[in-house]
Simulated scan of single mutants.
Amino acid sequence: MCVANKGFPSDWTLSWKVVGSSNWEEIRSPGVLQKDGLYSWSSTLRLSADQWEKVTCEAKRGSQTAFSETLRRDQCSQS
């Protein structure tokens, strides 16, 4: 799950880049107005545990990327 808080305006989106898999599902929420007048967003990525190499969540507005975070599979512990 990727979460962004305290943003403005409401037309930002969270999106995923997935390396190593072509079979995945993304569930996005629209911007939710909070009591402080700013917005929050979330996006959930579903994919098979052994079918990816790295994933990146990006916060974007139009063509502008404000933030991205990448996680590689070898950084994750398996239980």
Rank of each mutant, 00 (worst) to 15 (best):
S68V: 06
Q78R: 12
Q51Y: 03
R46T: 12
E26K: 14
L38I: 05
C57P: 00
Q78I: 14
G62I: 01
G37A: 00
P30S: 07
I27A: 06
L33N: 06
A4G: 02
L45D: 08
Q75F: 04
S79I: 15
C57T: 04
V55F: 00
S29C: 13
N5G: 07
V55G: 00
V55P: 04
D50A: 14
P30N: 04
A66M: 10
S15R: 09
N23G: 08
L47N: 04
V19D: 10
C57Y: 08
E26C: 08
E26A: 11
Q78M: 11
C76L: 15
G31S: 09
S42C: 11
T70L: 07
A66Y: 10
I27R: 15
W12N: 02
Q78C: 05
F67I: 12
L14V: 02
F67H: 15
V32K: 05
N5T: 08
R46V: 12
K6N: 11
P9M: 06
P30Y: 02
W16T: 03
K60D: 00
W16M: 01
V19L: 08
A66H: 11
D50F: 07
D11P: 00
D11R: 00
V3E: 12
A66D: 07
T70I: 05
G20M: 04
T65R: 12
L33F: 05
R73E: 13
D50V: 12
L71C: 09
T56G: 02
W16F: 15
R28G: 03
K6R: 15
D74E: 15
Q75G: 11
Q34E: 13
A66T: 09
C2T: 04
K60G: 00
P9G: 04
S77H: 09
R72G: 09
Q64G: 07
S43I: 04
Q78K: 08
S77Y: 05
D50Q: 13
Y39D: 01
S10L: 00
E69A: 14
E25Q: 13
Q34V: 01
T65V: 12
E26V: 13
A49Q: 13
S63M: 12
A49T: 08
L71N: 08
A59R: 01
K54T: 13
G7W: 00
S22K: 13
S68I: 09
Q34F: 05
V32N: 03
V3F: 10
